[in-house]
């Protein structure tokens, strides 16, 4: 995700809907993908994306430019997604969507690679499905966003040891799954 210029943020914060739309167009893919990785269904990712942009709209005028816009954004996004996922798993497990989403919605510059991208997406979904929402949030911030332990800890309001143990559990689970896959392919 590219950084958003100060001027555009200020304009949108003053209620300029065109400026806000411009911000949406530039970062909605980033927010949606981050949300999708944590909640792991299209429907929930859409709801989270909507909530995130409403929160942003309400608080843009108080954005202080001390932190980068991106950091501010992924913090709001990951926490909104995490709360949503926790609420969802409390209410019902897996009744909204069982099917994989259309792989064609994955942005890939080369159309010929779409099938591969679809496979990667399905694979990622299977992997992330093995983890609980807390573990998913840590893995997503670490592996996909490249955030370090300190950054993950302060984003999620937990301590570094908790980050470490969640990553450890998550990876152990993924390794068990990896071993099963290798066994089932006879390799």
């Amino acid at each position: 995700m590219q950084e958003i210029e100060k001027e555009l943020i200020t304009k949108a914060g003053q209620g300029d809907m065109r400026a806000f739309r411009e911000i949406y167009q530039r970062v909605s893919g980033y927010v949606y993908t981050l949300a999708y990785r944590v909640v792991n269904t299209k429907h929930d990712a859409e709801e989270v994306t909507q909530d995130v942009f409403l929160k942003i709209h309400r608080s843009l005028n108080s954005f202080k430019f001390e932190a980068s816009f991106k950091t501010w954004l992924y913090r709001i996004a990951v926490n909104t997604a995490l709360n949503h996922a926790k609420k969802r798993s409390r209410v019902t497990r897996r009744e909204v969507e069982e099917t994989f989403e259309d792989p064609a919605t994955v942005t890939q510059p080369d159309a010929g690679k779409r099938l591969e991208a679809g496979e990667t997406e399905s694979q990622l979904k299977i992997l992330l499905d093995q983890l609980n929402p807390d573990q998913r949030a840590c893995i997503v911030l670490r592996e996909i966003e490249g955030v370090d332990y300190q950054g993950i800890a302060s984003s999620l309001g937990i301590n570094i040891n908790t980050v470490r143990s969640r990553l450890k559990r998550a990876r152990e689970t993924l390794m068990v799954l990896g071993r099963k896959e290798v066994a089932s392919h006879g390799m």
Binding site: S28, Y32, Q50, E143, M175
Partner: peptide, 23 residues
């Protein structure tokens, strides 16, 4: 193999147009 590389190829997805309408 199991916990790092699979995430390296993660692409970016785009939300449906209806999301902006709702917002």
């Amino acid at each position: 193999r199991s916990a790092v590389i699979p995430f390296k190829e993660a692409g970016e997805m785009q939300p449906d147009g209806v999301v902006w309408q709702r917002i």
